[in-house]
Design a protein around this nucleic acid. Structure first.
Lengths: 195, 195
DNA sequence: GTCTATACACGGATAGAC
DNA sequence: GTCTATCCGTGTATAGAC
């Protein structure tokens, strides 16, 4: 049995991912975590926002490792992209379209309502972009192009999750995958004119 | 002064877009709408879910018209895409990154928690895709390619909104725009091999 | 059709026994 | 450090006067 603090974070991560933050009560988190209600305030004295901030940062870090693992060996970037999207689709199908990005729902909820939590989500995305850029550079891509490609990859994945979860279909993931692949191919050949 | 029912829907649309559905109370909606609380149940007897369903469908229809207007004259598809993303970025900057897609936050919130509302969001996205496909076809694109391109466009836009709102930057919109443009260019030349 | 008052459950938060 | 009881505000929903 893991410790109480970890179980609470596991529970909040899962519930935030499926229901969002304002749709999830602290009592429900305690219940799912099999932890006494008071433990939440013992480990997270700042209450719900405190817990949410740590949930965002921890889940964000783990999800980054999960996704960027597909770019581990710098062989064929187009193939890496395709594999990443296919894997994401498989997870969605296996979890009845519940397990997509763990912070996207919360990110949209807090973007205009809670500045400290908005910054927490921004820090996560910034981290993904910065670390992701170094990964893409290893495929022999210039830094600014690598940055643009990883941002395009993340945005495509996030957007595809929105449509896929609503439609209960992996078709958006396939279309998004194609977009990113095309962008990579184009960048690999020669940079197209600025628009 | 518009009628009460319309003001209520206007208020719920704006609040859902910025705070999500579970983060918005009916009392707050009545307040913003300058409507008596009881009017909500007068016009939406099914309560919050009733109001949410109608909010999703109305806002979804309006936003479709707003976005697809950029594909009105079938000239240069790449240019149309670029203009659409640029315009979306301007709206974000003008509204302090609040006015993005009016249904995305709600879509993620209800995807795994409320089946009837999930279907409402799915109906909206399906409508965007179907109508959008007919728009893209007018650029001399085969139906299946047109469908893939409009899905790729919508997913890129939605994903870029997630990152842009969190980061308070339009950089994700630019990267997403490039992805879609590359995909369009590639489709216009000759179809690349299946992946 | 407009508006107020209120019932009842659930939300976050806290106190304090053990 | 664990766990329960409880406070108080807010949330949804309803009743009913006007």
């Amino acid at each position: 049995m893991t410790n109480t603090r970890t179980r609470i974070l596991d529970a909040s991560t899962e519930l935030f991912r499926r229901q969002g933050m304002s749709g999830t009560g602290l009592k429900q988190i305690a219940e799912v975590a099999k932890a006494p209600f008071g433990s939440i305030y013992h480990f997270f004295p700042g209450g719900k926002d405190d817990l949410a901030g740590q949930t965002i940062r921890r889940a964000g870090g783990e999800y980054r490792d999960l996704v960027l693992a597909f770019f581990a060996d710098p062989d064929d970037l187009v193939a890496s992209v395709a594999t990443a999207f296919t894997a994401a689709g498989q997870v969605l199908e296996e979890t009845e379209y519940a397990d997509a990005c763990p912070i996207a729902t919360v990110a949209l909820e807090v973007a205009s309502t809670n500045e400290t939590l908005r910054v927490a989500t921004a820090d996560v995305f910034t981290d993904w972009i910065e670390v992701g850029t170094t990964y893409i550079e290893r495929y022999q891509v210039a830094p600014d192009v690598a940055r643009r490609l990883i941002i395009g990859f993340i945005t495509s994945l996030e957007g595809a999750f929105v449509l896929a979860r609503a439609l209960r279909s992996t078709e958006p993931l396939e279309a998004a995958s194609r977009n990113v692949q095309a962008s990579v191919r184009e960048a690999m050949e020669t940079e197209p004119p600025e628009r």
